[in-house]
């Protein structure tokens, strides 16, 4: 996958899309499970809307076409690795063509909770061919920015245990059959995901953000980065207007 200018296709142009029509900004938040992406996206959305931007947020398995089907498939625990990769790619394509591109045409700021990089990382963590999935996902648009919320596995463990109280089957990579223990499986699987995401930092130009910091610090760091993208003609506004509770 070659790195290109924002809002160009990586290597497979979608029929019927003229990229010169795309006006908005495409911002991606990446990171492993339980790293705090959705919290940050909620705050960013509020902030950006207060700044006068129209915001669309979109995340995995939320497409009109495949969202339900993926949920059902996951409940059955029968989802095999390549099938999973392709089901999520279908879901992504449906959101890209029917939500993301129309929003970009209309000049929205599009905030994405996990883009093709998470699909690719999951595939790589399951031993699938990196070049295969990179080409399959090649119809994606290059984002303006990719913020990678990075933490070590031990920190994810404490977030899961303290925050949710239980390990999730798929977040623990139980389909990889590392063993029956969900904690050990979580550690191995998330370790692989982090390694796969780390390997994309340079080729895909991720901006790495230390996700072990307090929530408000991470938010301010994201704000600083996003401000530099020159989102609007509204003029710069420095002080964050959104109250974000500091991590206790």
């Amino acid at each position: 996958m070659r790195s290109r200018q924002p809002l160009q296709f990586y290597n497979e142009p979608l029929a019927g899309v003229d990229i010169s029509d795309l006006q908005g900004k495409l911002i991606v938040i990446e990171g492993p499970d339980a790293v705090g992406r959705s919290t940050q996206i909620a705050h960013l959305r509020q902030w950006l809307e207060q700044e006068g931007h129209a915001v669309l947020d979109s995340g995995m398995a939320r497409s009109a076409l495949a969202g339900k089907g993926i949920q059902m498939a996951k409940e059955g625990n029968t989802l095999q690795p390549i099938t999973m990769t392709l089901f999520y790619t279908t879901d992504f394509a449906d959101r890209l063509e029917n939500e993301i591109i129309p929003a970009l045409r209309a000049g929205f700021v599009v905030l994405i909770d996990r883009y093709i990089y998470s699909i690719m990382a999951r595939a790589i963590a399951r031993g699938e061919d990196r070049r295969w999935i990179e080409q399959v996902a090649g119809f994606a648009l290059v984002p303006h920015a990719i913020y990678y919320l990075r933490a070590e596995v031990e920190q994810l463990v404490s977030r899961v245990v303290i925050g949710r109280g239980a390990f999730d089957y798929w977040e623990s990579g139980m389909d990889l059959r590392f063993g029956g223990d969900m904690y050990e499986s979580f550690v191995r699987y998330q370790g692989r995901l982090i390694k796969a995401l780390d390997s994309m930092v340079e080729p895909h130009g991720f901006t790495v953000i230390d996700a072990t910091q307090p929530i408000d610090k991470i938010f301010r760091s994201l704000q600083r980065h996003i401000s530099r993208l020159k989102l609007s003609n509204l003029g710069p506004r420095r002080a964050p207007r959104v109250k974000v509770p500091a991590t206790p």
Binding site: L14, A93, D94, E97
Partner: peptide
């Protein structure tokens, strides 16, 4: 609901 791409992927 299909586009050529989602038809192919599904």
């Amino acid at each position: 609901m299909f586009t050529p791409t989602t038809f192919s992927l599904l």
